[in-house]
Amino acid sequence: MKITEETVRYVAHLSRIELSEEEIREFTYQLDAILKYMDQLKEVKTSHLEPTSHAIGMKPLLREDKVEGSFSQEESVMNAPERKGPFFKVPPVIEV
C-alpha cells in the first residue's frame, strides 16, 4: 500500500474536509489505485521529453492592464454566511 488511512486523514484535514470512516477506507483504496497506475506509467521511457503540466500546447493569453467593472459592496458580501456591514465576518484569527 502506498497510501495509508493516516495519509488520507492528514490530507482531509489539510483540505478541511470531514470524512466518515467508510469514506476514509474508500478513498484510501482509490488513491492507492491511482498511485499504482502512476507506477505503471513510470515504466514508459520519457527522459527525452519535457515534463507536461498542461494538456494544451498554446501560449497563454495575457490581459491588458485595464480596470473594468467590479462587484458593488453589497454584491461582494451578499452571500457571506456572516457579515458585519461591508465586511465578511469570520471567527477570530489570532495572529500573535
Binding site: S76, K84, P86, F87, F88, K89, V90, P91, P92, V93, I94, E95, V96
Partner: peptide, 15 residues
Amino acid sequence: HEGEIEKSSYTLVDF
C-alpha cells in the same frame, strides 16, 4: 481585528 486581538470574538475581512 476589532479591539484587542486576544479578546476579540471575531475578525473582519476586506478583499
